[in-house]
Nucleic acid binder design. Structure first.
Lengths: 114, 114
DNA sequence: AACTATACCTCGGGCGCCGAGGTATAGGCT
DNA sequence: AGCCTATACCTCGGCGCCCGAGGTATAGTT
């Protein structure tokens, strides 16, 4: 299990990046993240929804209610222009930090030991 | 300025990595981080000391008081074996997350836009 | 009728940074 | 002597944020 702080740091960039690939909704996002990380990230909906609401409050995503073919209500989220800019900035920040860490880690990944 | 959550996620790996290069003390660590990050990371001592104490409480570092040539008391910290193992694990976690993000970011660094 | 999966939501605890404030010594300047 | 800066350590409290627990509702299966 990845440390909480690291997960916390990645929540926003991951969410923005997923929505940058096309609109989606809560449950689907959770599953996409689960698959994408080979199960390393398994977020509960209690984690996800507050984040989505916050992003919406900041104007980075916009939501619309729609019906699925199965007849269930879904709230679809899609990225705004401001959201795309925010994603680019999150990326830049991540790479900044990554560069700093690489300087400190002369030896790459340092496999195994687990 | 880098986001707080991202900084929070990097605190432990950075501290452990710096101490892995040899023993050091509070003020020096702050300066090393400042230089190393080209000023992108400027931690206050109020940030640093609680972290050091926590790491010591977990047995990842050990400290000893010594005198500098100038005659001031300094508390030197150095990594324990457990600390080295912890560092390796932090590295592994970071690279796990990095791999996930890279999957979501087909376009590399995405320079500029700043 | 009961259960599972889908689909949304809120609340509260806990963890952890970090600004503000505190103590103390060494050295330089006036 | 008095003052300032740099060095060097520390603690406390607020704020932000994940995330487990709990709640509501519908569709399909057993």
């Amino acid at each position: 299990m990845l440390p909480k702080v690291l997960v916390a740091a990645a929540v926003r960039p991951i969410m923005l990046a997923i929505l940058a690939q096309g609109e989606s909704y809560g449950y689907q996002i959770i599953q996409r993240i689960h698959d994408l990380s080979d199960g390393k990230l398994a977020w509960s909906d209690g984690t996800l929804y507050p984040v989505l609401h916050r992003l919406e409050g900041e104007g980075l995503v916009r939501s619309t209610w729609r019906m699925s073919e199965a007849g269930r209500k879904r709230k679809y989220y899609r990225l705004t222009h401001a959201g795309q800019a925010a994603l680019a900035q999150e990326q830049a920040h991540w790479f900044d930090m990554h560069a700093i860490l690489l300087k400190l880690w002369p030896t790459p990944p340092q496999l195994a030991l687990t």
